[in-house]
Design a protein around this nucleic acid. Structure first.
Lengths: 138, 138
DNA sequence: CGGTATCCATTTGGATACTG
DNA sequence: CAGTATCCAAATGGATACCG
């Protein structure tokens, strides 16, 4: 499976497999933030990722660790301290992730606008409510 | 919400919203392939995306259209012909997607290896019982 | 602090059948 | 050809409780 292949469709399998992990919302967040902040503890990450539950953050970090993208270091203290950071492989993922991140920040507005237009058109086509009534406008 | 903000964590909301759509496996496939091939019909896309069901491809394309990333052109013929291609906005997503795609092709092997090592270590820790593994038999 | 275990509602998505 | 509609199994993920 060559990267040089101009028809990227042949790499669907690898892409699909990778996307199952890193195409995940929380994974992207974790990689993006760890790449930016360097090293973070569990609850530091949790606080920085809006809306993530403890369960999901744990699962996400375990999977990233399993995939060799993040290292998990336990300090046998009381209370326990666990630190996460990107591996070398994880750091190479930084660039693609950041490109996506920047694109999101830059084009989120355009997407929201497009949705509004689409929805308005849909609404017009299907009729907001098939009211039997007569007065439109006014 | 400024892109220039060095602390990208402040853009979590936009990132999160965008990822809900384009972080989706099938969406990435469609954008990647359409970007490469230009214009494709429904069944051409379906054939090129390994494992996608008709239902999922339809839903994916509708969402991409709604988000202003893909245009859908219907030719009123018999049998019907419907063509999809990227919008200008969709084309700007090409670069981030391709970066991710290339990264996948390049590092998929490393991830598979990392998983094997991780799983082997887990197996040793938990006491090498051949627990009910998902890949046994068939 | 940094998890694990369990429950359970919601979402996802494949399979199948039908349509213009 | 390019969908839509329906059903239902499986995956997802939040809430909650407890543990080393």
């Amino acid at each position: 499976m060559s990267l040089q292949d101009t028809s990227k469709s042949s790499n669907c399998t690898a892409m699909s497999d990778v996307l199952n992990r890193i195409g995940d919302k929380w994974s992207v967040m974790v990689v993006g933030i760890l790449g930016n902040q360097g090293t973070l503890r569990f609850n530091e990450l949790k606080r920085m990722i809006n809306g993530v539950s403890q369960r999901m953050l744990t699962l996400t970090l375990r999977n990233l660790e399993r995939d060799g993208l993040v290292t998990r270091t336990i300090y046998p203290e009381v209370p326990p301290r666990v630190e996460y950071k990107l591996t070398e492989l994880g750091k190479t993922l930084q660039n693609p992730i950041m490109a996506l991140w920047d694109w999101s920040a830059e084009n989120h507005g355009a997407i929201v606008d497009a949705r509004a237009i689409y929805d308005a058109r849909e609404m017009a086509v299907s009729g907001a409510e098939p009211r039997k009534v007569a007065y439109v406008g006014a």
